[in-house]
Write a protein that binds this DNA or RNA. Structure first.
Length: 703
DNA sequence: AGCACGCCGACT
DNA sequence: GTCGGCGTGCTC
């Protein structure tokens, strides 16, 4: 074919990484011919088999590989218009690829905006010119207003951020003014260095619109965003602005940690404990951990990293305790806002099946009567998690998953929350024909209904009936619905907001004086040993929604309360919660984890397998474990027996996993690095029929 | 991962 | 007789 073309005299070999997984045999950089040497980080299009793909020039690997068999093919196109991705960025990608056991190309190319891959060099050049013109015609940014003066705690935090040689863990209560610290740290940096860039990471941008608003209000056009809500064209445009240094501040979700930011000097990870920083597919990286590493790579520029949370991840808390991070405390809530008092409702004293204890209902009524608002948390959407037949015991199971179909009353459907399967609610039991099917348990939809019923006779000051709003993945699906509901809470159009954990995020509600958690115990004894940490975080976060306006609370003469319904009121988690004492909770949890040898006192990786039949998945994992037998690091790594996942079947696929654990991270890393090539060989040559796919998850968060 | 080639069941 | 299922093999 075209390969017969004789390379021009003076052509040189260049190494190029492409977005190919390791099992393709293309894990290492590929060698092509170019008319002249190309700088590492340059984007190129290269022929690969019968197609042409985007690749990136990489520096030759330290250990020279033997030349590929056939004649080298020439690079098809060099994207000269785009400045190469710089050495710091490549070092970050190289680290992420190595640590999370992926190929360079997978990580490097996945970090680029998808729209970039579809462009030709000519289209890119046009795009860049257009962006440059738009920039010239745009009005200069006009940051609005004077920054507010800072409290002593904020000033201290800023001083530490300025001077610390370590990652800073900003431990600040909800409403203690962490955002103002981020803003002023950013402002100082930009004032100090006319080219510096800052990266602000948030868990989910649509749940925290206020942070974006505050950054825009302060820095105007210097702010750009990077998240999945943007159109492909916007994402490309924003990415280019960051890459070319025009965007001074990038506000984004976890993917933004891999954005190109040549003059990056400040990284903020807000709500650093949030699990959404851990990627759950592809390269399963932790954006928080990569942020810390990235700051280290930028040390020569004076790059700093700030991890902020009211309830840090226990890993981060421990890192601060041993001195790897520097902790700064901001304990006080601004403006004298007070902490909710904890009210535990012992559900063992309530009749079985009670949704809302009478005392809690009365407390809500009292608040509504005074014109205050309440927030009721139930971490389960739908009307009921399952429906059952009264006669034969049939339950609504998903045909594709080891899960129940959830009853959604609104559209009379049964829906699987794992695979999306949806069906009409049957008129009668599919097994015995009995017509009495009963919903078991409660979801937000039912809670909303029961609250409406219970509060039906209640009137607001103006005589109108009280209004109940619901916020969960179902009601938030429609465009603008989330903003609309939040606005209704702010304006007072909604008196009681019912919802899943999404109502606990950073919304700054002014008139909420009561927060209630209705069905708490599921999380207390979940099989996942991280469940208590997540529950504590959720309840602290939810509690933080109440009493934010101290003047309002005082004028009302009200008491701010957090109500928790539980059958285990004596659980130590609640004692710490009552004192809103994260430190005590962390100490207790860390003690348990140390005793049990769990993270952060050990390091873990999972080998996950998916297969048509469970046996095939388990057999593969056993093969894999056997293949690890004599590997480096093996003596320091515990391999547990392969087990089916808690949710064994999802969308017709059986899942199992093998846990690896080591007190010594380098040993685990060494083992993984040596193990993966063997696994690829095993997959290709051993009998692995039925196995659909497998993947390594380093530092897994969920099991 | 793509994208081909290649060998067995229900349709114009 | 073809269209099309997805099994295996290759890509510097």
């Amino acid at each position: 074919m075209a390969d017969a073309v004789v390379p021009p005299a003076g052509a040189v070999a260049v190494e190029v990484v492409v977005a190919a997984p390791a099992h393709s045999g293309l894990g290492e950089p590929l060698t092509y011919l170019a008319a002249r040497p190309l700088a590492p980080g340059t984007l190129v299009r290269v022929p690969l088999g019968r197609r042409e793909v985007l690749g990136m020039v990489w520096e030759p690997t330290a250990t020279p590989r033997e030349a590929p068999a056939g004649a080298l093919r020439p690079v098809a196109e060099v994207w000269e218009a785009l400045p190469p991705l710089d050495a710091r960025w490549r070092a970050l990608v190289a680290f992420a690829a190595r640590y999370y056991q992926r190929t360079l190309g997978e990580v490097a190319l996945a970090a680029l905006p998808p729209a970039l891959r579809t462009l030709s060099a000519a289209q890119l050049t046009r795009r860049l010119h257009k962006a440059a013109r738009a920039r010239h015609s745009a009005a200069p940014s006009t940051p609005g207003g004077q920054p507010p003066s800072v409290t002593d705690a904020q000033a201290h935090a800023l001083a530490v951020i300025d001077t610390s040689d370590r990652p800073v863990l900003l431990f600040g209560a909800t409403g203690s003014g962490k955002t103002e610290v981020y803003l002023q740290a950013t402002a100082r940096l930009l004032a100090d260095d006319p080219e510096a860039q800052a990266l602000v990471l948030v868990p989910e941008i649509n749940l925290t619109p206020q942070l974006e608003q505050r950054f825009r209000a302060r820095f105007g056009d210097a702010v750009t965003t990077l998240h999945s809500g943007l159109t492909p064209a916007q994402r490309l445009q924003h990415w280019l602005a960051a890459h070319r240094g025009q965007a001074r501040i990038v506000l984004g979700t976890r993917t933004a940690v891999l954005a190109s930011l040549p003059r990056l000097r400040l990284i903020v990870v807000d709500e650093e404990h949030d699990p959404s920083y851990k990627s759950q597919e592809g390269a399963r990286y932790s954006a928080r951990d990569l942020a810390v590493y990235r700051a280290r790579l930028g040390a020569d520029l004076g790059c700093r990293v700030v991890l902020g949370s009211a309830t840090p991840a226990l890993e981060s808390w421990h890192a601060a305790a041993v001195g790897r991070y520097q902790r700064v405390d901001m304990a006080q809530r601004m403006g004298g806002a007070c902490w909710p008092q904890l009210r535990l409702v012992d559900m063992r004293q309530q009749p079985r099946g009670t949704t809302l204890a009478p005392a809690l209902l009365a407390a809500i009524e009292a608040r509504l009567a005074r014109g205050e608002q309440a927030l009721v948390l139930l971490n389960r959407r739908g009307y009921a998690p399952v429906i059952a037949c009264d006669a034969c015991g049939w339950k609504s199971g998903c045909p594709h998953c080891s899960a129940h179909l959830v009853y959604h009353k609104g559209d009379r459907s049964l829906r699987c929350h794992h695979c999306g399967h949806a069906a009409r609610v049957p008129r009668a039991c599919p097994d015995c024909g009995n017509v009495d099917l009963t919903p078991i348990g409660r979801g937000t939809e039912q809670l909303e209904e029961q609250l409406a019923l219970a509060l039906a006779s209640l009137r607001r000051a103006d005589g109108s009936p009280v209004r109940i709003g619901r916020l969960d993945a179902d009601t938030a699906r429609a465009a603008g619905a989330l903003e609309h509901t939040l606005e209704a809470v702010h304006s007072g159009a909604i008196d009681v907001l019912v919802g899943t954990q999404m109502i606990a995020k950073g919304h700054d509600f002014r008139r909420i004086t009561l927060v209630a958690s209705v069905n708490t115990d599921g999380a207390l004894f979940a099989s996942d040993w991280r469940a208590p940490e997540r529950l504590f975080t959720l309840l602290m976060q939810a509690a933080g929604r109440a009493g934010r306006d101290a003047a309002f609370v005082a004028a009302q003469g009200s008491v701010v309360e957090l109500w928790v319904q539980t059958a285990y009121p004596q659980h130590p988690l609640f004692a710490a919660l009552a004192r809103h004492d994260y430190a005590a909770f962390a100490a207790q949890q860390l003690h348990e984890r140390r005793t049990a040898g769990m993270p952060p006192f050990s390091h873990q990786a999972l080998l996950r397998a998916e297969a048509r039949q469970l046996d095939a998945a388990l057999a593969w994992l056993r093969h894999a474990a056997a293949a690890a037998h004599d590997l480096p690091g093996r003596p320091h790594v515990t391999l547990y027996a392969p087990v089916p996942m808690t949710m064994t079947r999802v969308a017709g696929i059986e899942r199992a996993q093998l846990l690896l654990e080591s007190p010594h991270r380098p040993a685990l890393q060494a083992l993984l690095a040596a193990w993966l090539p063997r696994l690829h060989t095993l997959r290709a040559h051993a009998d692995t029929r039925g196995l659909v796919r497998w993947a390594i998850d380093v530092d897994p968060l969920s099991f």
